[in-house]
Design a protein around this nucleic acid. Structure first.
Lengths: 143, 143
DNA sequence: GTAATTGCAAATTATTTGCATTGCC
DNA sequence: GGCAATGCAAATAATTTGCAATTAC
């Protein structure tokens, strides 16, 4: 399997775009991260490695990475878009606590399969999907 | 079954808030609408009925209506939040064409049931969920 | 009467864009 | 060398907030 870096380079080449140190740093920073970063948070982390990188570059690169299929934007309904590295990983959905923001990743074959069926039934070619379950977690319920 | 207006009045009373002509107009305008309105679009429609209503009131009322469970925010990934009247309707999900923006409402018991199970498994009290399937519709595929 | 609500304008937040400069291929 | 990329600051877009005046209960 190709490395994310390879995938990105190929994507860029294909589009007549260029690999740059900034893009490399942004991708690598994202890959190293366990949790889901907002553009703002990513920007802060990236700055530690190269102080001269600008916000706009981070935004621009996030868009490219999303297009290339390496990362996925997430919407936890708090107004900020977060991103997660998705390349090579199983698709999963998110279970979010509305109180404390806790975020559990869930994977469910039944649902994935059913989604495909629904798309087919309506004559759609499914490209991606998002599913978020919002609720109250056990800890918050007992407060 | 209670009317949406009743539900809203009760919700407001419960929270020591007040019913106002503005809130009434905003709710009624939303209920009359077939499709999914953004705050901006709703504001325009509402203004036709009462020219003096301000944007902020629309935003504030949308929040109250969402809290009261009468409407639901939708995210079609185009940067604007839309709302739909959800009270008394079956919950449904959305199948969206990434090319032409076509939007099909789908209802699936299998998925709904499975979501409940997943929430329970992780000890969450499920409050709401969002599911969006993005793809390319038949018409756009054949272009 | 009193606390909630309103409209307005200014503030905030997240993101995008124009542009002169720099740097990959 | 030429076109794409960068950083910066200014621009946008959507939404929120402060506040003085108004209104529902």
């Amino acid at each position: 399997m190709k490395t994310p870096q390879e995938v990105f380079s190929e994507y860029l080449g294909h589009k007549n775009l260029k690999m740059t140190p900034q893009r490399r740093i942004i991708l690598n920073t994202l890959l190293k991260q366990k949790d889901h970063l907002s553009s703002e948070e990513l920007y802060a982390r990236v700055k530690k490695r190269d102080h001269s990188i600008g916000q706009a570059t981070v935004y621009r690169t996030l868009k490219l990475l999303t297009d290339s299929g390496l990362i996925e934007p997430l919407d936890f309904a708090d107004g900020v878009t977060r991103y997660e590295a998705s390349y090579g990983k199983n698709h999963h959905d998110h279970l979010i606590c509305e109180q404390c923001g806790k975020n559990i990743e869930i994977l469910d074959e039944t649902i994935e399969r059913r989604q495909e069926e629904l798309a087919k039934k309506h004559n759609f070619t499914l490209r991606r999907h998002k599913m978020y379950l919002y609720g109250i977690c056990k800890d918050c319920r007992n407060k």
